[in-house]
Amino acid sequence: MQRITKFLLIFILIIGFTTSCGQKEESKNNNNNNQDVSSGYALKYDNMTITPGDVFTKDKFGEYEDYIELESCAFEDKDRAYTYEHFEISTYTKDKQEHILSVYFLDPEVTTTEGVALGDDKSKMLEAYGDGYTNNDSEYEYQKDKSILIFILNDEDIITSIEYRYDI
């Protein structure tokens, strides 16, 4: 009888332990999500600083040209994208607030804070950011804290895509 009680108690403790571990993990992740914002790569454009992970407010970066809202397959969260003259800002929702998920360059009229634009070649990227990238196919990622700057190059080593992204 005592053995059974012991077994049941141990079982309940294991369940409780696993459960509380999950909660701690969740709260740890939440804390992580709150730190490092504003300390990574950010786009400086027209006297504004656009930092992945920062709270996004509609009037913060002037008037956008287009707004796109796409629902997810099942859940209530939505993908939102704001199109400005030279880039597109995508957002995600956390704690009922919109945060900047990515800034995607639409044309060569805008440059990264360090002066790299679409159409530049690989050497300009290396000159500005060095060789501390991670590379997958033709994609080059530079990460500073939770902010990732991503370049995609074509076969001629010309930059065809630039994106700032928040590492959720």
Binding site: T83, Y104, S138
Partner: peptide, 12 residues
Amino acid sequence: AGSLPAKRVLAS
């Protein structure tokens, strides 16, 4: 259907 997000270039 209205506007859609930019068609992104993919690495692969």
